[in-house]
């Protein structure tokens, strides 16, 4: 069963001068094993929305269920069920380095699995596995203090701490911000693999449309607390109006194709990946290739 968000609204600090309605009637389902991306302008409510997925924030109105269980426990028994359901959702926050606290990288990553009742031995396996998944060398990093790492290293430790829980639903808020190009590519590849092999569902909040191209089957555009589009990336990134309304830009590949066709190249739309873009450009040039090569020389 999925994560279901049913017509939720959320208001920060109601009744104060800071009162702010961050979500205005959002309905949204994350099917099992799905990979969904959420994009939107800064302040559009992305982080607020996903913090509902594990009950960290309770909606002002509306309901959130995980595998059919309401995350708002009303009595003791349903509270326990809600807690249990929320545990299936692993959440990597927007600045996750902030949450690193243990003495060593090892302890930090092992904390979650141990808290979920795994034995020390099982947790040890999870730590090794998760560190390799985020590209951190086990021997060189396990004894390091998590507070004395570079930005990207800290980010990797924080992500490893959640991957070590092997959550059924993985929710990531800007996970690739701060990762170097290889780290970014490898992490996205690893997440995709986990989703395919273990059926893990993924919700990805990101400002990088390229991440969405690399990973997601579905993308949601959020604008001022409302969903204005929910579609496959290939179609979504062609919706110039929706992109503009959401304060977004298309991925670099799409932007490049748009520019080329504005400059007069006859080139098909609907291209997403770098491979596709290169191929489409090649095809559109090849009939006149001889002539063009002369000119380029």
């Amino acid at each position: 069963m999925p994560i279901e968000v049913k017509n939720i609204t959320f208001t920060y600090m109601p009744g104060t001068p800071y009162e702010h309605q961050a979500l205005r009637g959002v309905s949204f389902t994350v099917e099992e094993g799905a990979i969904v991306a959420i994009a939107g302008h800064t302040g559009s409510g992305k982080s607020t929305l996903i913090q509902h997925f594990n009950g960290l924030i309770q909606p002002t109105t509306g309901q959130v269920t995980v595998d059919g269980v309401d995350l708002l426990g009303r009595d003791k028994k349903s509270k326990a069920a809600a807690k249990e359901a929320a545990r299936k959702v692993g959440m990597v926050f927007q600045y996750p380095e902030r949450q690193l606290f243990a003495e060593t990288v090892y302890e930090d990553i092992a904390f979650g699995p141990l808290a979920h009742g795994l034995t020390a031995k099982e947790a040890a396996l999870r730590v090794r596995e998760a560190m390799s998944q985020v590209g951190l060398d086990y021997e060189s990093y396990r004894r390091r203090s998590p507070l004395e790492l570079s930005g990207g290293e800290g980010r990797r430790v924080a992500i490893a701490g959640i991957l070590a829980l092997r959550p059924k639903y993985l929710v990531l808020d800007e996970p690739t911000a701060g990762l170097d190009p290889r780290g970014r590519k490898e992490l996205l590849g690893k997440i995709k693999e986990l989703s395919l092999k273990q059926g893990m569902a993924v919700v990805l909040v990101t400002h990088y449309m390229e991440d969405i191209v690399a990973l997601a089957k579905r993308v949601v555009f959020l604008r001022r607390g409302e969903i204005i589009l929910d579609d496959a990336p290939r179609r979504a990134f062609l919706q110039r109006e929706a992109l503009k309304e959401a304060g977004l830009k298309p991925p670099r590949t799409v932007a490049l194709i748009n520019r080329l066709s504005e400059a007069g190249l006859k080139i098909p739309r609907g291209v997403l990946t770098v491979e596709e873009a290169a191929e489409a450009i090649y095809q559109s040039l090849s009939p006149r290739q001889g002539e063009r090569q002369q000119r380029v020389k």
């Binding site: 190009p181 290889r182 932007a255 520019r259 090649y282 380029v296």
Partner: peptide, 28 residues
């Protein structure tokens, strides 16, 4: 651990397909 910019990568791919593009393209 780095990667070329998109313009460079596309230019490289087009060159590999036989297009004769000048070297040194790194901006869109």
């Amino acid at each position: 651990g780095l990667e070329p910019p998109l313009a460079t990568e596309i230019a490289d791919r087009l060159r590999r397909r036989g297009l004769n593009l000048p070297r040194g393209i790194c901006r869109e």
